[in-house]
Amino acid sequence: MSSYFDLTSSLWKWDSPIWLLVLTLTGMYFLLQRSTSGKRGAAFSVAMLALTLAYISPIGVLSDGYLFSAHVVQHLLLLLIIPLFLLLSLSESAMESLFSRPFMNRLGSVMAVPFLGWLSGLGVMWFWHIPSFCNASTVNYSLGIFRDATFLLAGLAFWWPVFSPVKRYHLNPSVAVAYLFSACLACTLLGIYITFTVISVCPAFASPVDRIGILNLLYDQGLNPATDQRLGGLLMWVPPCSLYVTAIMVVLKRWYADIETVPTSQTTANPGSLREAHQ
């Protein structure tokens, strides 16, 4: 297995254009958030590290036509890890002032509508695993880039109602729990389906083109297409759900710490109650 960690092997793709994005984002981050706390800086580094690894490490190389499971790991990084840590890296005060402008405020509230975030977060997962789309985006380079961009954006939209740096966009806790739990249910369904189905979800991975001559290595490790897909399904199911459960714990922690000094203030700035007000 040493070859996975052998940084000079063809399993690492050091000349990936992802560096451009990483550098741009880092530049922007330091421009916008001059006085950043250590925690936020760390969150940002995690996001950038995950972004880099998603493309240059074996995850990126193998997800390019070799292993369905690696491809799922890449999705998870793009959809769940990177957006989550990006949101955590933004400072509350800077974002507060940014989102106090009318247009941005509208945008922020629209993104806080739970239905939209849920649908984009889960929607991309389901959409890009319809066999023909999955295949096309694996085979076609620019479609692949487009797909990855949708994953990042959908991830931001998904986490926004729970972890937005601006507190007023947070869902009310019971809605947030339902939001995350149903998300877990939805990815469980997709994961189970991919794990147990006998259909090849992404035919491109069923007969890989051996670009860099590692196919035998993979097969020797037992990662034949059927096992690989099963592993991919499990990865699509268990890690996201664990993350959602962790997020639920964070929400509950907030909820239990929700001690207001003014007892009867009916906080209307709460997007959860905003939704109720609509009904």
């Binding site: 729990v177 469980t188 794990t195 099963r230 499990l234 268990v238 459960v245 639920i248």
Partner: peptide
Amino acid sequence: AASSVAIVLLGYGVWAHHMFAVGLGMYA
């Protein structure tokens, strides 16, 4: 209180530990 919420949620995801002898495959 919060950890029982975790139990409720995780409780739906571990059923197959009653089925290890079935042969679900190594990864499962």
